[in-house]
Amino acid sequence: MLTVEGLKSCYGRIEVLHGVDLEVAEGEIVTVVGANGAGKTTLLRCLSGIQPVSGGRVIFRGAPLTAAAHGRAALGLTQSPEGRQIFTNLSVEENLRLGAYSRSSRGVRSDMAESYAMFPILEEKRHLPAGGLSGGQQQMLAIARALMARPSCLLLDEPSMGLAPLLTKQIFDTLKTLRDRGMTILLVEQNARAALGLADRAYVMETGQVIISGMARNLLTDPRIRDAYLGT
């Protein structure tokens, strides 16, 4: 579904991604874990087109990904950006409607009903400004909004950021449900334990490179990872 080959990216003159290789197959959850500043978010920003790429290439559904950032949602690649980035001044429903911006308006209503079924609290607050939602609700909205584009691959940046453990679990359970329905998910997470527990495969990034990759289940018990990222 998504193949990343030798991806490089710079902030100014400083290269922060030094050739990242990564593969996401259809229907799996792949997670990228790593410490702050490892380049995880930069990687996702490159995939969604917000960050310029200086080397390597990205292949999405068999074709090189060269569309501008705003053209990628229509291709089926949708990102839920870091820090949620919901439209705080718009209502919950308007946020969802905007999620479907890049596709035809047919079926928006039923997709919205599905979002509400997944996150009932959003339906309760659908006419309120999204800025008034709690952190967890905002995260639900960010995911629901991304799903409104009917993506074939969902990019999630730190969905657990700033959330209580219980809410994190709820969000991750939702991701599991989505996978069971056939969604492909690339999940960038700092919460390595939760991410590895959920994902099929995982990549560990450090200073702009992938240093370890493998089945998520195996990485959970890998001593190198236990020491550095799981703290046990």
């Binding site: 969604s48 087109g49 917000i50 950032a69 705003h70 053209g71 990628r72 949602a73 229509a74 949708t78 990102q79 839920s80 950006p81 980035q85 919901i86 439209f87 705080t88 001044n89 718009l90 308007e94 905007l98 999620g99 911006y101 890049s102 909004r145 991304a146 584009a149």
Partner: peptide, 15 residues
């Protein structure tokens, strides 16, 4: 109004 709220998010939804 969306890009007013967040340009990054506006681009990710395709604006």
């Amino acid at each position: 109004r969306a890009l007013h709220g967040s340009e990054v998010a506006a681009r990710t939804v395709g604006i």
